[in-house]
């Protein structure tokens, strides 16, 4: 367990350290959100219709940014070989990486999401739900995304490849997350969407580490 925690802290340090990956993702997120009114027009009614959905898509895209380096930096400097030889199974390593990706990447983004939704004309009453959905969905984005990062190890142009591999798997998350927010805005029952979002995210936490570990073993063999 202490090994797991050490690994988790190391991943957090690497994510927050030089380059400030999390802040970069937030900057990207702000840029995408700022482009929306420029493309759709500043009319508040039109913005309010698309705003929450667009904020959610921008969240999905922003989580892709920091994925490329997640496994690759350890793959390049040989750290991954050491981790594979170490006492902690690779599945637990994948779990630690996914959790760190969530805390360092998705948590700041989840804080930014209500702000973006508000700027794009979302209702203030929906903000707590937006935050909760972004936090919960971020768990799924992080774990599915880090599995994609592990699969793309040793590939050329890994970054674009991760996006192509992972985005179809993001479909349910986008549907349930945006659906819950939209149902809330329409005054309908929003709990099923949030519950499904949580279910998919938790299933991703439970299952994707195995796929990621298989991918890492394959890349190292």
């Amino acid at each position: 367990m202490s090994g797991f925690l050490t690994l988790y802290r190391r991943e957090l340090d690497l994510a927050w350290g030089r380059g400030g990956g999390a802040l970069l993702a937030c900057g990207f997120y702000a840029c995408v959100a700022a482009l929306v009114p420029l493309a759709v027009g500043p009319d508040p009614e039109r913005l309010a219709a698309v705003g929450p959905g667009v904020a959610w898509i921008a969240l999905a895209l922003s989580t892709l940014l920091s994925l490329e380096r997640l496994y690759e930096r350890d793959f390049e400097d040989g750290g991954l070989d050491l981790l594979a030889l170490g006492p902690i199974p690779l599945e637990a390593v994948a779990l630690a990486k996914g959790l760190a990706q969530w805390t360092a990447g998705s948590l700041p983004l989840a804080l930014a999401t209500p702000v973006a939704a508000l700027l794009l004309g979302g209702a203030p009453q929906a903000l707590p739900l937006t935050f909760a959905a972004a936090l919960l969905g971020g768990l799924g984005f992080s774990f599915v995304g880090s599995m994609g990062a592990a699969l793309a190890l040793g590939a050329r142009r890994g970054g674009v490849l991760i996006a192509v591999v992972v985005l179809p798997l993001f479909c349910p998350l986008v549907i349930f997350g945006a659906g819950a927010i939209e149902a809330f805005a329409a005054g309908m029952n929003w709990t099923p969407g949030l519950a499904f979002l949580g279910a998919y995210s938790l299933a991703a936490v439970a299952l994707t580490p195995f796929a990621a570990a298989a991918a890492v073993r394959n890349a190292l063999s």
């Binding site: 599995m147 699969l151 190890l153 040793g154 590939a155 142009r157 192509v164 591999v165 298989a214 063999s221």
Partner: peptide
């Protein structure tokens, strides 16, 4: 996604196995 992953890893065997994991997911 499957074909893109398969095409962008040079080592034929590794590409096959990584793509197989993706196909199962």
């Amino acid at each position: 996604g499957y074909m893109a992953l398969r095409a962008s890893i040079d080592d034929e065997q590794k590409a096959g196995r990584a793509a197989a994991v993706l196909a199962l997911v």
